[in-house]
């Protein structure tokens, strides 16, 4: 009896001790997040319900937001960016990572070249892309012309501008996906492949039986990060469509505008931070819902 109690106590203290350790490890980070991210976010939330210089509760910003056609165009574009960019950048990133794994030589060289776009400063490289896309004398149309394919307006036409921006984002981000997939492939124990090989599994079967399931945490990570980042796309759009040619960010005719571009225009160009806050809240809710759905659908080994 006495002995039993003692072990129970020991177990309790062990569990409590471990809990306390966890809290100790997390104390500073949680404080940091509260101060640097959560409090400003709550400020933004409360701002979205008031007018500047007053504290009276109002839904005006949300009403205006829902009625603004440009806002809905931006929402539609943002979703399109996600649908186009995320699957392609992940697929290409995975194929490149697998391809590089399979070869024996020049691995580091291939990795670095595929990763180069992610390293490059967007200002300089946007200018190069604009030159490639230029509809009259640009390289891409010259190639199309040479192949006898119809030429396109690329960044300058509303029908193709979004795709053109998406291509640049994929170009930049697939190296990032490749890197994370490479890390994910490295931590898969080799014994599992050997075991599968002994079982007589072919290459294709080994991929589906071993690689793919064990890459699940990596895939979940990249899908969620990719969606969150793409839902917040701003820099590439600003650099590819701003300046002398577009007249405003997200052009032509709002065809490349994303929710963050819309928010930025409202907050920083029209000085309407409270209205911009409302679009941020909308975006936050959108991202939250999508992320929760993703966890449900994608996650096999973790529960949120």
């Amino acid at each position: 009896m006495n002995n039993n109690r003692k072990t129970l106590d020991q177990m309790m203290t062990l569990r409590t001790r471990r809990m306390l350790i966890a809290y100790a490890f997390l104390f500073i980070p949680v404080l940091f997040y509260l101060g640097v991210r959560i409090v400003p976010a709550i400020q933004a939330l409360s701002m979205s319900f008031t007018h500047e210089g007053s504290s009276v509760f109002t839904l005006d910003h949300y009403k205006m937001l829902l009625q603004d056609e440009v806002f809905w165009i931006s929402v539609k574009n943002t979703i399109l960016y996600v649908v186009i960019v995320v699957p392609l950048q992940m697929l290409l990133g995975l194929l490149i990572a697998l391809g590089i794994e399979r070869v024996n030589r020049f691995k580091w060289f291939y990795r670095i070249v595929f990763f180069l776009p992610y390293m490059t400063s967007i200002v300089a490289i946007s200018w190069v892309w604009r030159l490639i896309y230029e509809p009259n004398t640009g390289l891409l149309n010259k190639v199309l012309d040479w192949l006898n394919l119809p030429v396109q307006g690329w960044l300058t036409h509303p029908d193709t501008a979004l795709i053109s921006v998406s291509i640049v984002i994929i170009w930049q981000m697939m190296g990032f996906c490749m890197l994370i997939f490479t890390a994910g492939l490295q931590v898969i124990p080799r014994q599992l492949y050997e075991a599968a090989e002994i079982d007589g599994a072919g290459r294709w079967k080994r991929f589906w039986m071993v690689t793919f399931p064990l890459l699940n945490p990596t895939i979940v990570f990249l899908a969620i990060i990719g969606v969150i980042q793409t839902l917040q796309t701003f820099t590439q759009i600003a650099n590819l469509t701003g300046g002398a040619t577009g007249g405003g960010l997200g052009g032509p005719l709002h065809s490349t505008s994303s929710v963050v571009v819309y928010m930025y225009n409202q907050g920083f160009r029209d000085y309407n931070l409270h209205f911009a806050a409302a679009s941020t809240v909308f975006l936050f809710i959108l991202i939250l819902i999508v992320t929760l759905i993703q966890f449900r659908v994608l996650n096999k080994s973790y529960k949120l």
Binding site: G153, T156, H157, P158, G246, G247, G248, G251, P252, L253, H254, R269, D270
Partner: peptide, 20 residues
């Protein structure tokens, strides 16, 4: 009154003629 916004309006209207 709002320089950037006024510029955007004129740009967009001309773009609608040119592109649409």
């Amino acid at each position: 009154v709002k320089e950037d916004k006024e510029r955007e309006i004129i740009t967009n209207k001309v773009n609608e003629i040119r592109l649409n």
